[in-house]
Design a protein around this nucleic acid. Structure first.
Length: 492
RNA sequence: GGCGCCAUGGCCAAGUGGUAAGGCAGAGGACUGCAAAUCCUUCAUCCCCGGUUCAAAUCCGGGUGGCGCCUCCA
């Protein structure tokens, strides 16, 4: 039942037919956060992309087992904890909670498993021991190092050459500059666990190999993460897992998302100090805005971030939601084809587009998850709806004609999580959040509108227009509709 | 220096052989007391130079420019 799809594989640098290890099942491992700070909009891109990907695969009939880890033992966490005089594990716990808040606020599904390094020490020790036993790792001064030269395929994912890496500093008992730590001997002020080689803590890469194996087995169907993790992190995971499992393939498809870039072209990164936290973004914009912003570009492309990014995404999203609302308001019943024939080409067009949308959506997403293409199709549908709804007779009888379009919106929601929020609720959230961002209250607006209404009744157009202008200067747009006066916040 | 990715209108962006989806912004029009929303019209030959082909944004070669990784990073 699971529908076939194609996916770009970083390992082959081509789009390939997806063939799972077991028919109908997808084991997906995604590198999660190192929890020493809040989740920023760059991380969130990866989170939303893989969340959407999982929703889509399930929508298409795949049984997906989704694992996303927390790295809660790490140099950066320890450093931050020492700065704050806090216990590292306590600090990472705080940020795990904060991450869950952000993830929930973004409307992300919880993965099936969210393993933590601190709770996976047994698995890590076992894999490390296995690597030593098989001659791929060695002990030096209480630390364990992976011997890169024992793995002939090293560098295949990233194109790095062992010869060039070798020249790096071979400190701390490393035999080669290319070698990397599986286990780090304890240092003062650092958390440590007992091990056969003395107290210490896991190296950076071993965690993912161990956690992926314990949840998904030796071979993972799809392993995801940011493009910046290709080297060294994912390269080292391959080395550890394949050497630790006697050469068994670790990952069938490597799926890497592109990074968020600043208008300057630089990526957004904690080390560059140019981050926007999810918490801040969501205070000003509904979560759906963020999702649309991420999905409007192909997942592998860089995505530009700027002042106008979210306002523009909100304008796009509002257009879709409003078209949906327009369609929902159409009434009547009967045979859609017959009504459409009677009502003319605009009716026939929206009926046809609505019916075609599921197939077009699937075609776009089945080909390397092309969300950008899929969105383009959706906007065409929105325009067709609006055009049709402009017909006078559509209001009372057009319902059946737009029924497939409305079903298509539901399909989008199920398949991607986009437009999943009820229309009215979304439009209200837009108002609430944008007003808060602008520092305007509903009461002020209502008062001004009452003032204007009095002027209009008196046909004092100059006074009425003055109020309109005043509100517009505060980014509030007044709309005189047949049903009454409405207002909205200017979006861009 | 090594490895890799990319270069489409004012901005964002889809598009792997047959003469350029979509969004945002702009202009004109319909509608409106005026507006807004909506609809209609309008706005690109795809970085440059060669090559392959009946035909290239799309393939090949060479430039130029940008970015990612090579140290922590989604």
């Amino acid at each position: 039942m699971a529908a076939p799809f194609r996916l770009y594989n970083t390992l082959s640098r081509t789009v390939e037919d997806f063939v799972p290890l077991q028919p109908g099942r997808v084991g997906l491992y995604v590198c999660g956060m190192t929890v020493y700070d809040r989740c920023h909009v760059g991380h969130a891109r990866a989170m939303v992309i893989f969340d959407t990907f999982v929703r889509y695969l399930r929508h298409r009939g795949w049984a997906v087992e989704f694992v996303r880890n927390f790295t809660d033992v790490d140099d950066k966490i320890i450093n931050r904890a020492n700065e704050l005089g806090e216990d590292p594990i306590a600090l990472s716990k705080r940020y795990i909670d904060a991450f869950h808040e952000d993830a929930d606020a973004m409307g992300l599904l919880r993965p099936d498993h969210e393993p933590k390094v601190s709770e996976s020490i047994e698995d890590i020790l076992a894999l490390t021991q296995e690597l030593i036993d098989r001659g791929h790792a060695y002990v030096a001064d209480g630390s364990v190092w992976f011997a890169v030269e024992t793995f002939g395929d090293y560098g295949r994912l990233s194109g790095q050459k062992v010869d060039e890496l070798r020249s790096a500093d071979a400190a701390d008992g490393k035999r080669s500059g290319a070698d990397f730590a599986l286990w780090k001997a304890v240092k003062p002020g650092e958390p440590a666990w007992p091990s056969p080689w003395g107290p210490g803590r896991p190296g950076w890469h071993i965690e993912c190999s161990a956690m992926a194996q314990s949840r998904l087995g030796s071979t993972v169907d799809i392993h995801g993460g940011g493009l910046d993790l290709v080297f060294p992190h994912h390269e080292n995971e391959i080395a550890q897992s394949e050497c630790g499992h006697g050469g068994e393939k670790y990952v069938r498809y490597w799926m890497h998302n592109g990074l968020l870039t600043m208008s300057s072209g630089q990526k957004m990164g904690k080390s560059l100090g140019n981050v926007i936290n999810v918490e801040v973004a969501l205070a000003n914009f509904p979560a759906q805005t963020l999702r649309l912003y991420y999905l409007q570009n192909h997942y592998r492309s860089p995505l530009p971030w700027g002042e106008e990014a979210l306002p523009e995404a909100l304008a796009m999203l509002s257009r879709l939601y409003e078209a949906k609302e327009v369609a929902e308001a159409l009434g009547g019943e009967g045979d859609a084809d017959q009504i459409a024939r009677e009502m003319g080409p605009d009716a026939e067009a929206v009926l046809k587009l609505g019916r075609e949308l599921p197939e077009r959506l699937h075609a776009a997403l089945d080909e390397d998850f092309n969300t950008s293409k899929a969105l383009g199709d959706l906007f065409e549908l929105a325009r067709a709806i609006n055009r049709f709804a402009n017909l006078k007779k559509a209001k009372k009888r057009g319902g059946p004609v737009v029924a497939p379009a409305l079903a298509a919106f539901d399909l989008i929601a199920d398949a991607t999580g986009l437009l999943a929020q009820p229309t009215r609720e979304f439009l209200e959230e837009v108002k609430t959040k944008r007003l808060a961002a602008l520092g305007v209250t509903r009461e002020e607006i209502e008062a001004k509108l009452a003032e204007r209404e009095a002027a209009r009744v008196a046909k004092d157009w100059a006074a009425a227009d003055a109020v309109r202008k005043e509100l517009e200067e505060r980014q509030i747009v007044v709309m005189d509709k047949p049903e009454g006066v409405e207002w909205r916040v200017k979006l861009t």
